[in-house]
């Protein structure tokens, strides 16, 4: 469904050029849940923005159902890591979820039902008239997810969405995303630096190298479904997969740390 072919992205020119993405190729089938993991600063966010059509790649292409992605495609929705900077603070929860629907050709009733259904799916129907900043971090991210769902995308891109959320909430949100995937049948591309999360959620894990990033290995995850925070994580297979991915990433992280010893705080490139 989604094909990334030889994608690369370089910022700037000459000696000071930053090669964020080297040469990335992989594909995602319909209905799959694919996690992309990589060491910090390897270019994950840049990669995601290129796939989402927000950045133009320096080389390579992204094909969505055969069609080239040149700008944000209609069948795609994004969930960002920083929910406090992606939800509009002057709008209520309801209006935030409604916002992307306003320019779509829908009747008022249709819009209203989409908003309600989406908020119900994430469990926030009772908070429609609150403002995002009145809610906890986890709830705000759920609003962002609802907003993406109401948009009725065929593929959902998530950029480290639970990185800014506390560990316990993260577990709930992970299960929510799995549930939503089952209920709505969407394809999900999930970027994360949390290795446990990547194995827990996905059908396949794409492990990236350090910057300029390439695909190091694609690991199929054949764990049973439905996933469970306790049962699944007790399985031997989980531990094996996790260790495997961890080793891959750790090796890349060490190289990354040596080549770029001063971390850029706060930014995930």
């Amino acid at each position: 469904m989604l094909e990334i072919k030889n994608l690369s992205k370089t910022y700037g020119t000459g000696a000071t050029a930053t090669h964020a993405v080297g040469n990335v190729s992989f594909s995602i089938e319909e209905g799959e849940f694919v996690c992309v993991v990589g060491p910090s600063g390897c270019g994950k966010t840049t990669l995601l923005k290129c796939i989402a059509g927000l950045l133009r790649p320096s080389a390579g292409e992204v094909l969505l159902r055969g069609g080239r992605v040149t700008g944000p495609p209609e069948q795609m929705a994004l969930v960002f890591q920083e929910y406090s900077r992606s939800l509009m603070p002057w709008m209520s929860v309801r209006n935030n979820v409604l916002l992307p629907l306003r320019h779509k050709k829908l009747s008022r009733a249709e819009r209203r039902s989409l908003v309600e259904d989406a908020l119900r799916a994430v469990g926030l129907v009772g908070f429609m008239d609150r403002y995002p900043w009145q809610l906890s971090g986890g709830m705000q991210q759920r609003v962002a997810i609802a907003r993406a769902l109401a948009y009725q995308p065929q593929i959902l891109l998530m950029d480290e969405p639970f990185a800014s959320v506390d560990a316990q909430t993260r577990g709930d949100l992970e299960d929510l995303v799995l549930q939503v995937r089952d209920e709505f049948g969407i394809t999900i591309l999930f970027v994360t630096h949390d290795i446990d999360e990547s194995v827990y959620l996905s059908d396949r894990v794409v492990a990236l190298t350090h910057a300029p990033t390439e695909v190091k290995e694609v690991i199929p995850v054949a764990l049973p479904k439905p996933r469970d925070q306790i049962a699944t994580k007790e399985l031997a297979e989980f531990a094996r997969l996790r260790a495997h991915v961890y080793r891959l990433i750790k090796r890349e992280q060490d190289i990354e740390d040596v080549e770029r010893p001063v971390p850029v705080s706060g930014t995930s490139v």
């Binding site: 923005k49 927000l54 944000p72 795609m76 929705a77 994004l78 960002f80 916002l99 320019h103």
Partner: peptide
């Protein structure tokens, strides 16, 4: 970015 990703004109 959010607005652009949702293709808001």
């Amino acid at each position: 970015d959010t607005a652009r990703s949702f293709r808001i004109p």
